[in-house]
Design a protein around this nucleic acid. Structure first.
Lengths: 158, 158
DNA sequence: CGAGATTAACTTGTGCACGAGGTACTTGTG
DNA sequence: CACAAGTACCTCGTGCACAAGTTAATCTCG
């Protein structure tokens, strides 16, 4: 009940979806709840959430270009470059220009970075438990959200 | 297949969940896909995504304290105070100290802010269409994500 | 009433996330 | 080979998002 409404505009009153029913808001809230839940665990190993994802991606795919990481994580250079520099400063990754293409920067995990990613193995089950959903429910969310993301980024599966 | 693996550590190889199967990553990707899809639409009316949510909340609940907005949106003062100042600079909200409690700041929509929120009424159906999910699927996501958020913020429904 | 606790809001600092603009290297074409 | 186009990356500016520390008003209760 918008308190600023006066009697005049009752012509099309209350056709407004409630904020709590916005899918985008539910998604936004859930995302922040999840990253906030990860935070204390990641603080212990000195990582932020996006940094953690970068280590996971590098562990999974091996040495990658910045472009490749961006494609995997859907992030651009403006986000990745400073993030990777911080990881390098902390000794977790190495950044090197490729000899065969001086434009490209090859990012690879150091031993310390590899060890840290392995140490973070416990995070997923810990978070899974805290979320309190069944495996089927998690799978259902993942399936629907992947379709949503796909539709929004590649255009509807036309 | 982590390329940095050597033969020694095959003891517990491949117990690592793939990044694309992280629920948190799926959620993070979907959230960013949605806000990126909103961006061009919001640019037209000169709002950012969180600013849009604040206008929606104010329209729905009427004049609110900063604390009240924070509770509704799960945001803290460090985020809201500068955001509200920008909205005030743009003439969309008014900020006023309450007479009966000088600690509290009452935030209310201006006429321009009210008009803008009404103008943004078309965003929800437009985005809903772009997401390409059925109403049932959207309801399912909302239901599951609300439970997830609840479990993570209030602790499991113990 | 008055000292201490509480509360509402603000400020500062760090780190994403993204757009726009810039640089250096490589490729394609005449 | 030269030069235009394209590519990979970096930088800068804006705006969240959050933690930690600060200020000022209000409440508590002795």
């Amino acid at each position: 009940m918008p308190s600023t409404h006066t009697v005049e505009d009752e012509t099309q009153e209350e056709t407004f979806t409630r904020l709590d029913d916005f899918l985008c808001f539910v998604l936004y809230s859930a995302h922040r709840a999840v990253t906030n839940a990860y935070r204390p665990l990641l603080d212990e190993i000195g990582l932020t959430y996006p940094q953690y994802l970068v280590l996971v991606a590098l562990y999974e795919n091996g040495p990658s270009s910045v472009k490749g990481l961006g494609a995997k994580l859907h992030l651009d250079y403006g986000t990745l470059t400073p993030l990777l520099k911080r990881l390098e400063t902390n000794g977790l990754v190495q950044r090197r220009r490729r000899a065969d293409d001086e434009r490209s920067v090859q990012v690879s995990l150091t031993e310390e970075g590899t060890a840290l990613r392995r140490r973070a193995r416990t995070l997923i089950p810990a978070m899974g438990a805290a979320m309190g959903l069944t495996t089927q429910e998690e799978d259902q969310i993942k399936m629907l959200l992947r379709r949503l993301t796909g539709n929004l980024t590649e255009g509807p599966g036309a």
